[in-house]
Nucleic acid binder design. Structure first.
Lengths: 150, 150
DNA sequence: ATTTCATGTAATAAATTGAGTTACATGAAA
DNA sequence: TTTCATGTAACTCAATTTATTACATGAAAT
């Protein structure tokens, strides 16, 4: 089963936007993400409806953040993406007539919801600001350790 | 993202086998699961290698359990199925060069592994015997409440 | 023996789905 | 009025899972 990396991808894009001065075009973002500009627009279009980003057309246009990095958590982004399934495992039938399957579902349901709740709780504790700080930290120490051009 | 219901399906099949007297054919099991006999054989063939079930060919053949219901947990079955991904969410790139993406991955990794560990721990606490007991309980009360043929 | 039934397995088809692409409309700035 | 950028629909592509077909193997019944 292939994992859904949209959340990971969106965070990548948002942090690049946070690091930029002006608006960033979907073409530039697509370059960083090694994907297609239309894909970027589709994803960010969804986030715009939640007020997380805004876009401008024409010359000098592009995308910029429209939210407070300190106030937005991974959970908010997850929800803005439509709150897709967090777990890869699921029930074969949601409301089975078979009593065997009812027993199976009942036993697994608790485990599922506990794990999902834990993950989403963790997401709620991580703000975009924290990610951005971590990124800048990595960039700084990366310069010290690896960049010997100057 | 579609959820992987193989574990759910296998449990269904195993409990029906536990409830049967003799061996059960893959055709009968396929009927219960509304799928194809070959699919059943493929799945159970994997479990046979782990010693969880055994099969017999020819007349009167079919599948039967080859394990102690008290000793086998959902976790064992999960592993026997190849321990597929538990989470639907994942990293866009596993070892990214981009520092932004490194920061994103680092932040999400902990949440991921905690949620996965929790789910698998819960699976370790549920035995096939417990599921089977629950099933028989449901059947009994179902007879009392709904079955007025006798 | 040979017929019947059931598993074992390879190969293929069909269905699903996310991602990528093309094409064109809309709108803003140069 | 030209250029640049988003907005969106429609379509193609690629990967994965599941279902199906076909046939070989082996065991029991007759």
């Amino acid at each position: 089963m292939k994992r859904d990396s949209r959340l990971s991808g969106v965070l990548h894009v948002l942090l690049h936007m946070a690091d930029a001065d002006g608006p960033v075009t979907s073409e530039a973002l697509a370059g960083m993400m090694q994907t297609n500009p239309v894909v970027i627009r589709r994803i960010l279009g969804g986030l715009r409806k939640q007020g997380l980003v805004q876009s401008e057309k024409g010359h000098g246009g592009g995308w910029r953040l429209a939210c407070d990095l300190d106030q937005v958590t991974l959970y908010d982004i997850h929800v803005a993406l439509g709150a897709p399934d967090v777990l890869a495992l699921g029930h074969r039938t949601e409301s089975p007539g078979c009593l065997v399957e009812q027993a199976v579902n009942a036993a697994m349901s608790d485990a599922f919801s506990e794990a999902e709740a834990l993950l989403l709780d963790r997401f709620r504790t991580i703000t975009l600001a924290a990610l951005s700080r971590d990124f800048r930290l990595r960039r700084k120490s990366g310069e010290r350790e690896c960049d010997n051009r100057k």
